[in-house]
């Protein structure tokens, strides 16, 4: 290391020790203001998420109650006639193909990936999950950051809620 190098390093040490050591006070104040603002938004989003989960859970219970199958009637044994007894030796005929009632003949539906709900990370790990099909207002798409125009915000959209073992929703996917 020659004289010039030494001089330069000494100068750099002086430069390092020179000048302000702290950011101005105002920076801290502005950051604290921003921190409070974000905290407030976060709490609001958490309540929105819990609200959505509660609605989803309520709808799930309603759907479950409505779709509970009726108790089937006990099967009755049929007494065969001689003619039908003869038919036993014939080749069995296949049952007619099941046709879905009109309500089930829907167009192809496309479900996209589940989106994590705001603050789902804060919830305990999911051990089991239930998917609940619900109708949500189009405006709820904003929760996951998708743009929704104001004139369509009131329309409803079909969605699947991913509900954990504790009844709290972790994710949502929208079905087109």
């Amino acid at each position: 290391m020659n004289d010039n190098d030494l001089k330069l390093l000494q100068g750099l040490q002086e430069l390092a020790a020179d000048g302000p050591r702290q950011a101005p006070e105002g920076v801290e104040q502005r950051l604290l203001g921003e921190f409070h603002k974000r905290l407030h938004e976060r709490r609001r989003n958490r309540w929105l998420g819990l609200g959505t989960a509660a609605i989803a859970a309520g709808l799930a219970v309603l759907l479950w109650v409505r779709t509970e199958p009726a108790v089937p009637a006990p099967r009755m044994a049929r007494v065969g006639t001689p003619a039908s007894l003869k038919a036993v030796n014939q080749a069995p005929t296949p049952p007619p193909a099941l046709s879905l009632p009109p309500a089930y003949e829907r167009g192809p539906e496309v479900a996209i990936n589940f989106y994590r709900l705001p603050d789902a990370d804060e919830l305990p790990p999911m051990e089991s999950a239930t998917i609940v099909r619900v109708q949500l207002p189009m405006s709820s798409l904003r929760l996951i950051g998708l743009p929704v125009s104001e004139d369509r915000a009131a329309e409803s959209v079909q969605a699947d809620m991913l509900v954990g073992q504790d009844g709290l929703a972790r994710g949502v996917r929208f079905v087109q």
């Binding site: 000048g19 702290q22 950011a23 920076v27 801290e28 950051l31 604290l32």
Partner: peptide, 18 residues
């Protein structure tokens, strides 16, 4: 946690600013 943020900020702000 605001107090944690403040402590972290005070720990590192000088270096970042300089």
């Amino acid at each position: 946690n605001e107090a944690a943020f403040l402590e972290f900020y005070r720990r590192y702000q000088g270096s970042v600013y300089r």
